[in-house]
């Protein structure tokens, strides 16, 4: 075990509690999407990537195929590749320890680690953030899916179908602070909505990736 300094532990726990609120929403949405308690728990323990899990469950709940659910989840989580590269110098250690660290690679653990300059504190922050979020995320998922089960058939009456778009909007909001994010979002939304009538559910979301590619191409053309 690694000893963790108190200020790092405090930050990790505060972040994990905030993520817990999101985990409850994920659990509830699993219930709405017709997943069993075991399937919801499986998602959170094995996949352990918040926005990807939410996207995959959203696509499945809308009647999309397995392929489009998996692809939307993976495209949304491509960013993990970027942090993985950035954080890897402080992880080190044996292969089993690096494999275990990889499973805990999420926005929060990587963010905490990258915010520390000292490599030792950075490693502590990574593990503390990863473990704290893993525990709370999984407990919160179970709580959420159990709550959804208790509500039963009244999902639409209590407006639960609006929880999915609201959750995605909350994840999107911080990405709208830059012009490129706003244009990519607008293009993605237009592509997806215009495809809804013509293709199977799930495909519009995957196709929206073309919005980001368009922004990228436009940026390259302007700055050769």
């Amino acid at each position: 075990m690694i000893a963790v300094e108190r200020d790092i532990a405090r930050k990790a726990i505060a972040l994990a509690v905030a993520v817990g609120a999101y985990g409850v929403s994920f659990g509830v949405l699993c219930g709405q999407g017709g997943l069993s308690v075991l399937q919801a728990a499986g998602f959170s323990a094995v996949v352990f990537a918040g926005s990807s899990q939410l996207a995959a469950v959203g696509v499945l709940a809308a009647g999309g195929s397995v392929a489009s659910a998996v692809l939307s989840g993976l495209l949304l989580n491509l960013r993990t590749l970027g942090f993985g590269l950035a954080v890897s110098p402080v992880l080190g250690g044996s292969l089993p320890s690096r494999l275990l660290a990889s499973q805990l690679m999420i926005d929060e653990s990587a963010g905490l680690a990258l915010a520390e300059e000292d490599p030792d504190r950075s490693r502590q922050a990574y593990w503390a953030g990863g473990v704290a979020v893993f525990v709370l995320w999984n407990v919160a998922t179970l709580l959420g899916v159990t709550l959804a089960g208790a509500v039963g058939d009244h999902l639409e009456t209590i407006g639960l179908d609006a929880a999915f778009p609201a959750a995605f909007l909350a994840l999107l909001a911080p990405r709208l602070s830059e012009a490129s994010g706003r244009i990519a979002a607008l293009l993605g939304a237009l592509i997806a909505v215009s495809l809804i009538p013509f293709v199977r559910p799930g495909i519009p979301v995957v196709a929206a990736a073309a919005g980001a590619v368009t922004v990228l191409v436009a940026e390259r053309l302007r700055r050769p």
Partner: peptide, 25 residues
């Protein structure tokens, strides 16, 4: 690309989940 991609996908998910109902808007 990795930095921009989530904005497009999340916006698509917002819209599809708000106005999508199988193949209808």
């Amino acid at each position: 690309l990795v930095a921009i991609l989530p904005a497009s996908l999340l916006a698509a998910l917002v819209l599809v989940q708000t106005v999508g109902s199988d193949r209808r808007v």
